[in-house]
Amino acid sequence: MNQNFYQPINGQIVDIIDESPTIKSFVVVPEEEFKFETGQFVELTLPGVGEAPFTPSSSPADSEKMEITIMNAGRITALLHQCDKGQKVGIRGPFGNGYPIDDFVGKEIYIVGGGVGLAPIRSLFLTLIDRIKEFKSVVCRFGARTPDDFIYKNTLFGSWQSIAGVDMKLTVDEANNDWDGNVGVVTTILAQDDVDVANSAAVVCGPPIMMKYALLKLLEFGFSDENIYLSMEKNMSCGIGKCGHCMLGKYYVCKDGPVFTYGQIKKYPEIWD
């Protein structure tokens, strides 16, 4: 019998973590074995209500459960934010490609992220630090609107600051009294000498406007189109390149993405719309 990719497997929300005023992380335990690669996404169903695409923020190495960080932004996410522990959910996927970790081996990895874009990046980061010796370094430049808007505060402000091989800088658009770091959009903490451009791969994930300007900066630094990996946000629905909602030029973001090199998609005008 053919596999039915529209059929979710059952799962349950076992824990909910408040990350910021608008963002929560949901710990989901699937009832069946569920494997994914970092950067791939899943369709999370509220039974009878609807589904929406999310890239898990946990490490694929954790096979028991998966964490999904969700901003309250639309119909389904608003309802998810009202859910309590114990809520039954459906999970479809994983869909699309992941980050090409093996291509990153031996390189410096320059990760630029902002806002809820840190969700897929967290999964990537956890995957990279598991194998940190295989990479020359992991250079992170993350931004948020205010210090409160940073997600994963405990680890971001804590243990992630002191991992050997990781160089982490943070910035906020607007500071508060407790903030003694950089103030300014994320491009203000990107510098030409952050990495050896010729031997680096850049990963960008965040709101479209941030991605657009970070990309321009990376190009200015001399990154080639093929060494800039962008996580694209489109209206992914079926997950298998058929329903048409997430088309970006000839690509289906759900199947050919969500991670694209800039070189793949640069000729299409609607990248950031």
Binding site: Y6, Q7, M71, G74, E233, N235, G244, H245, M247, D273
Partner: peptide, 26 residues
Amino acid sequence: FAKMKMWDSCMRTGFAAVAGGANPHK
């Protein structure tokens, strides 16, 4: 609970819109 599959149309205003509000084909 059921998941239904129904014809859609790319001529619909919100066809490609995402939850955050972006819509490449407004």
